[in-house]
Each structure stands twice: as C-alpha cells, then as structure tokens.
C-alpha cells in the first residue's frame, strides 16, 4: 500500500495531469479483494516497483544535475554526484535578474493557491446546490458543466485571449487568475459527494433550528464535504500550476509569469544563451517542491475524497 502512495506522490509531483485514473485503479481493488495470493501480489508489487522507478529516475537525474557545476554536469556520470555545488547554483539562480525566479515562484503559489481556493469554493457551492436543491433545469445545468469537463483548457486559451483583449485585461494577474477559478470537474465531484455525505435530514434539522441556507452551507454542509473539497483543491492546484499554455498566450510582463512559463521561456533560449541552462535545471527542481509539500500535507484527504468519487 505504501508503494501506491509513493507512486502517487511522485506522480503528482512531476506534474502529470492524469493521476486520478491511476490512483483510483490502484486503490480500489486492494480494498475489495482481501484474500490475495502471493504470486499476483508479488507481480503487482513488481509492476509498481518498475513504475516507481520509471517515475523517480528523471527526478533523481534532476536532483543530481542541479548539484553540479557546468563542467561536472557534462563531464561526469549524469546519475551520480560530483563536486557538490547545489547551494552555489541556487544562490546564482536567486541572484539572476534581481531574483526574478523567486517572483515567479510566488506568482505560481498565488495563481495556484488562491485560484484553487476560490475554484473549490465555487465548485462546492455549485455542486451542493445541484445536489440538494430541486429546481427546473437542474439536470441541464449539470450536463453542461459535465460537458465542460471534456473541453481541454488548451482549446480555450485562444478564445480567452481574444475575450480578455476586448476588455483590455491581457497581460494582467486577472488574465490567468480568472480562468483558473472555474473547475467543472470540481462541480461534478462535489455534487456526487454532497449527495452521498450530506443527509437531507441534517439540512432539515438545521433549517428547523433557524439557520439560513447560507449559514447551513458554511457551518454544516461544508464540513461534511471536506474530503471532497480537499480533492478538488488539489486537483485544481495542480491543474493551475501546470497550466502553462494560458500564461504563454496571456502574459508578456516577466513579473507576472508563473514559474512553469518562466522556466519554459528560459529553456527556449538555451541554445543562444547557454548560461541559462543551470538556472533551468535548478529552477525546475525547486519548482516541484511546493507541489510535493501540498501533496504530502493533504494526501490523507485526497485518498478519501477520490475513493468516494470512485464508489459512486
């Protein structure tokens, strides 16, 4: 079981956007089949071991590479350490162009952190309303939202750019932030979860006690939905963090870049400006740390939330 968790953490941290299906498949059968035989079990462990290795080797390479100075990076074994220059590299990265990298990191945390928070709140309200209130057009709305899950963010970037151009909001914080607070998948997940975990009786009781709908939502329902909300938050956090195409199209001012886009911009000029290379390497390594931290902190809830979604 712990292998599963490790894979998940590693997986998420390298920024894939499909951890959901994998972890769902990984977690569910283990619970349903208590009497496993030795050989299938060993086979499963082997497969997981191989995949763990597969996911971890690039990170290992990155860790090793970012501890080397330029000469060692080319001249020594790429999978083992040479002279330890990690802190020199980090210091050089932080000093480059007045610490623009730190600015990017902060931007990413703002976009992803606040964006995911607002997105979660909106998704929770929407999903809850769709689950608990009966009104005409409810299913239609839900189906439209579900349709939204199918539209890739990349396809929306250009239309969004043209829209934001109309209102002269391109190249602003809002041009990346506003599209990020929408999460159709979050609505789906919270609706399913609210249906399952918020009993109508409880809402009745709350109303009888004189609480308004808003108060009921914030004091009662939201707590019951908490595991799902953490899941939505994590999903959205990762999605925003990794959404590189939207900033690419929207942003021109360096001080607004998120870290993914900033590193991409540097990386695209490496041939002409080779000194950027070590900055890209060290920057990439440091940029996955916030993702790993978020995952480790919220992992417990994440699994509960996903499990619920899967069973439904």
């Amino acid at each position: 079981m712990s292998a599963v968790i490790d894979t998940e953490a590693a997986h998420g941290s390298i920024g894939s956007d499909v951890p959901a299906g994998r972890s769902r498949r990984g977690a569910a059968p283990a619970g349903r089949r208590p009497k496993e035989r030795f050989i299938p079990r060993a086979g499963a462990m082997l497969v997981m071991g191989v995949f763990t290795l597969y996911f971890l080797v690039p990170i290992w390479w990155l860790v090793v590479a970012s501890t080397k100075d330029r000469a060692d990076f080319l001249g020594t074994n790429p999978l083992w350490f040479a002279d330890f220059a990690f802190f020199d590299n980090v210091a050089a990265l932080f000093a480059y162009r007045d610490g623009v990298y730190l600015r990017w990191l902060l931007n990413s945390v703002l976009y992803a952190g606040f964006g995911a928070l607002v997105a979660t709140l909106l998704a929770a309200m929407c999903g809850y309303a769709l689950a608990k209130y009966r009104f005409p057009g409810r299913e239609a709305i839900f189906n439209v939202v579900l349709g939204g899950v199918l539209v890739p963010a990349t396809a929306l970037a250009l239309p969004l750019f043209l829209l934001f151009s109309r209102v002269q909001l391109t190249d602003t914080f809002w041009s990346v932030f506003l599209p990020s607070v929408v999460s159709p998948f979050g609505v789906y997940l919270t609706r399913v979860f609210a249906e399952a975990s918020v009993p109508d009786e409880l809402l009745e009781a709350s109303r009888l006690d004189g609480a308004g709908e808003v108060r009921t939502f914030f004091t009662v329902s939201i707590r019951l939905m908490f595991p799902a909300l953490v899941t939505v938050f994590l999903f959205q956090f990762v999605a925003i963090w990794n959404n590189f195409f939207l900033p690419l199209i929207m942003l021109r001012s360096e001080e607004l870049f998120p870290v993914t886009f900033g590193l991409y911009a540097w990386n695209s000029s490496i041939n002409q400006f080779p000194e950027l290379r070590s900055f890209v390497l060290v920057g990439a390594l440091l940029s996955i740390i916030p993702l790993i931290v978020t995952f480790l902190l919220l992992q417990r809830y994440w699994r509960t939330g996903l499990g619920t979604g899967a069973l439904k």
């Binding site: 151009s165 942003l251 021109r252 001012s253 360096e254 990386n267």
Partner: peptide, 25 residues
C-alpha cells in the same frame, strides 16, 4: 519591455494572436 519565450517557441504566435486581437506591441 515585454518578454516571452524565443520566437518560434511561442512569441511569434503571440504576435499573430495580438495582431488579430488588435493589441500588438
């Protein structure tokens, strides 16, 4: 000064988008 990735890595496409939207630099 505005910046971005090198030309073929995205900035040219951005220029075309901006020309289309009427807000090119």
């Amino acid at each position: 000064v505005q910046t971005g990735p090198s030309g073929n890595a995205g900035t040219y496409q951005n220029f075309f988008n901006q020309l289309e939207a009427g807000n090119a630099p």
